[in-house]
Design a protein around this nucleic acid. Structure first.
Lengths: 104, 104
DNA sequence: TTAAAACATCGTAAAAATACGATTAATGGA
DNA sequence: TCCATTAATCGTATTTTTACGATGTTTTAA
């Protein structure tokens, strides 16, 4: 994702925040990752293995998707022994909704 | 964008609606298209040429981006003679915000 | 009718995203 | 210690996205 664009106007959104928003939008603009988020609404804190079972893709692929969601700020990964539990990042989710509401 | 996934649970979101949400997220998950939307918040109803001037890309590229935003439901294109004015699709934008609020 | 203006579309090259099998790393028992 | 479990990472093939120049289309004006 390139990001060489300058903001056209402030709209109460810094350049850094705008980049972050684009990354968050991008992360959910994929059917598998959106489905993970929906699954987490019901199964928040579940282990990665559950999500792997829920999706029709290989473990490596799901792991990659979870990394994208993590780096975008939608989820946190908590390492518990050999397992990893995935939690919604409520703070960032709220931030995203607020900003979306402010701008549009 | 593939969409072979079945919904895990309803969450007041039909499969059709889920697909639409993913497409809307995907459309704004690009710096140029996000910038267009921000520009429209201030210059709603402006002509395509203004947006072309605002972005650092070729006319053909901007036209393609506007098509994506249109097909995702973020904007409407109104053909006025040889020009095209671009308007925010308030209805879909509201829908998106409502659904995002409902789900997360 | 011709020409210019404003956009859309086409064809295509280059870059990025997606998916997978294989491998690696870390942990927790037996 | 050795092995099984869980998940991350690596290397890579395939698909999709992005961007551009060139061309096509529609409308208005001369």
């Amino acid at each position: 994702m390139k990001s060489y664009l300058k903001a056209c106007c402030t709209l109460d959104l810094s350049e850094r925040e705008q980049k972050k928003m684009v990354i968050m939008f991008n992360a959910l603009g994929n059917p598998s990752r959106f489905e993970v988020m929906k699954y987490l609404v019901i199964h928040n804190g579940c282990y990665t293995s559950e999500i792997v079972d829920h999706l029709p893709q290989a473990q490596a692929t799901v792991s990659q998707h979870l990394k994208v969601l993590d780096e975008a700020g939608w989820v946190d990964r908590l390492y518990e022994g050999t397992a990893t539990s995935i939690c919604l990042n409520e703070k960032n989710i709220s931030w995203f909704k607020e900003k979306t509401g402010d701008i549009f």
